[in-house]
Amino acid sequence: MSTPLRTTAAADWHALGTSVRLVVTDPALLDSCNLLLARHLAEVDTACSRFRTDSELSALDDAAGRPVRVSPLLAEALSVALHAAEATDGAVDPTVGSALETIGYDRDFTLVREDDRPVRLTVRRAPGWRRLNLDRETGTVTVPPGVRLDLGATAKAWAADRAAKTLARAADCGVLVSLGGDTAVAGEPPAGGWQIRVQDITGRVEETPAQGSYTTVGLHSGGLATSGTTARTWRRGGHALHHIIDPRTCLPVRTPWRTVTVAAETCADANAASTAALVKGAGAERWLTRQGLPARLVSQEGLIVTTPGWPTNPGARGTARPAPTGGIAA
């Protein structure tokens, strides 16, 4: 007996300074799910934004090294960031906030390109994630004086994970949440999985060259994330800048990879790994393979490298199922 195909419905908008896409397998529940998602993202913004003076994260700047009680939401976001730092050997580090401000990324990205203030690039190490102290029992966090945090490398992916699971439980249907391309799915997927187009050239689908620049995967669970150095770029004082910071230099990372896409058990894990791969540079594909993470890496010259488990036909459909170890099975 054949199983009828599930229909889906989608909503697209903007929040957290990026694009938001919500897809559900029950069209009748789209509006209510969208309202819940909007509420969730507003709470994340209030807790985690580096650009809001009234956010919980910004309040930590004035703590002068004193323990500060934070909301469970921010404590969870910080815990995810610290886990990402540990799992990537510090390649993803939340203490790069000051470095981002130094290169001009101190406001919503839509305003960054309009700013013509000069920048002074100085090589230095980030303060380091090990200097943070998050006490989950007391709900407090201690940030050393002068250290500014940035959760941009993990917060959107974590928010997508959290929202997808919450909405799937509430609506009892399949849910996909994508925040700036960081995609999390939960609940029963459509037949064949959630079809997600992965491309390394920024732009609308119809403008993307057909040869070798994209692949389509069917994601059944977990998350998929792409990190790159070509999407959020700007120039300042003759310097070409982007938002991926190397904690070893506090400068935009110089990497052989244009984009890295990773599938993992959660979107947060996928995002941490894809960002870390850019920072690790040459040999990142071997690191991803050791982690058991299927990935697609595209070099600055357009050469595509994949790790075991990633669908191997560029431009064709493959299947992505995150395994219990955090990988996906083709």
Rank of each mutant, 00 (worst) to 15 (best):
L100G: 09
D108C: 04
Y105W: 09
E86N: 13
V96S: 00
E101D: 13
L100S: 07
D93W: 02
G104K: 12
Y105T: 04
G97A: 04
T88Y: 05
A84S: 14
T95E: 10
G90V: 01
I103S: 06
S79T: 10
E86F: 07
T95R: 04
T95S: 11
R107C: 12
V92F: 01
S98G: 14
E101P: 06
L100R: 04
A87Y: 04
V92K: 05
V80M: 11
D108I: 05
T88Q: 08
G90E: 10
G97V: 02
V80S: 14
G90R: 04
V96D: 02
H83N: 15
G90F: 01
A85F: 01
A84F: 06
T88P: 10
V96H: 01
T88M: 09
G97C: 03
G104L: 12
A85I: 03
S79Q: 13
V80T: 15
L78T: 11
A84C: 12
D89F: 01
D106W: 01
A87C: 12
T88G: 07
S79V: 00
A81D: 13
T95V: 09
L82C: 08
H83F: 10
G97N: 06
A99Q: 01
P94L: 02
V92H: 04
V92W: 02
E86P: 06
P94C: 07
H83S: 15
T88H: 07
D89R: 03
A99V: 00
